[in-house]
Simulated assay, not measured.
Amino acid sequence: MTILDSHPQVITLGISSGNLNWACSGVYASPIHVNISLLWNHLCGLADSMSIPWALVGDFNDTLASTEQRGGIFSPSRARHFMDNINSCNLMDIGASGLAFTWFRNFQGRSPVHKRLDCALASLCWRVGFPEGGVEVLPRLHSDHIPLNLRCGKKSGEFRWKAFQEAWHKGGSCILATLNEVKVDSLDFNKKVFSNIFRRKKHIENCLASIQSRLETVDSIALLLQPDKLKKEHHDILAQEEMLWRNRILGLHFPDGNWCDDTETLQLGVIEYFKTLFAETVEVDHSCLPTPGLPFIPSHFLADLEK
């Protein structure tokens, strides 16, 4: 990841995803309308020189339609200007799943205002390069803006190296005992280490999303007060999750002494490691195998085969 361009209202990064190089711009548009024009002048210049797939994510401080706002005064002229800027840069709105609005402000003595100020835009090349990509609107936690999660594709699984390796060696020379240890330890590892934290985190985020979705249609002081306790609990879970992922494998020293942090190379290294592990020649205790034991070919069948 490298910085390709920097501006007071946007930073553009160059990112490598496998064999595909693309650019991602993080946008934080100024609330002053004149400065927003400066932002779009800069983005149009970037669009003219951009030769790789390009995505932009962040707060554009504008809405495209009246349906993207609840409360306050909607400005059709600003919406048209926003759309004209998007078209001038040959970009498209990726859309999003989740909550309808991404910004919330509770003005004292007046009705709350909800807007979709945050969104993700992309070039056609980015859309073609990441056909399964999309945007998820996450629950609002610590800001009046709701975070967006830009996904380039489907979630990938994680390797549970250490837990598997330790379980494999517990069974000793007995294959059945070894496989049983792997099964028991894997289920226990997933339940106690990963699922518990992630399940609690997901539950709280679902509760927050439900409350915030309700507040998009109903003004309620009771609902406004509920998220505070949930946010505190969510913060504690995030601290636990951070400790958990400190041990996540980001890179490895291969047997030749070289350090590797490339995902595809790491996966190939893992596969090769377990190929070697399962191919080891070890003494096997056949007494642990179920009776009547291993299948065999009767001698009279062998004689027929030799004819």
Rank of each mutant, 00 (worst) to 15 (best):
197 I>S: 07
187 L>G: 10
92 M>K: 11
270 V>D: 08
83 M>L: 15
121 L>P: 10
129 G>N: 04
80 R>C: 10
298 P>W: 10
182 V>K: 05
147 P>N: 02
65 A>H: 05
165 Q>L: 15
76 P>R: 13
50 M>K: 04
104 F>N: 00
212 Q>P: 03
153 G>M: 02
24 C>W: 01
198 F>R: 12
302 L>M: 11
167 A>W: 11
283 E>R: 02
194 F>A: 08
206 N>E: 12
247 N>L: 11
12 T>P: 01
301 F>K: 07
279 A>F: 11
23 A>H: 06
52 I>R: 14
188 D>Y: 10
20 L>Y: 08
281 T>S: 05
101 F>S: 00
179 L>D: 05
301 F>Q: 08
213 S>E: 07
88 S>Q: 13
242 E>D: 15
290 P>S: 07
92 M>L: 15
270 V>A: 09
304 D>N: 06
199 R>P: 13
182 V>N: 03
29 A>T: 01
302 L>T: 07
207 C>M: 13
95 G>H: 08
105 R>T: 06
89 C>G: 07
112 P>W: 00
99 L>S: 04
273 Y>V: 06
247 N>K: 12
102 T>P: 00
128 V>I: 10
19 N>W: 08
151 R>N: 03
154 K>D: 07
50 M>N: 04
83 M>K: 13
284 V>W: 01
70 R>V: 04
125 C>S: 11
125 C>P: 10
156 S>W: 05
296 F>I: 09
56 L>A: 08
272 E>I: 14
263 T>K: 13
21 N>R: 14
107 F>D: 06
4 L>D: 01
9 Q>C: 00
62 D>I: 00
19 N>R: 13
11 I>Q: 00
16 S>V: 06
285 D>V: 10
121 L>E: 11
83 M>W: 13
225 L>H: 15
283 E>D: 04
229 K>M: 12
238 L>T: 14
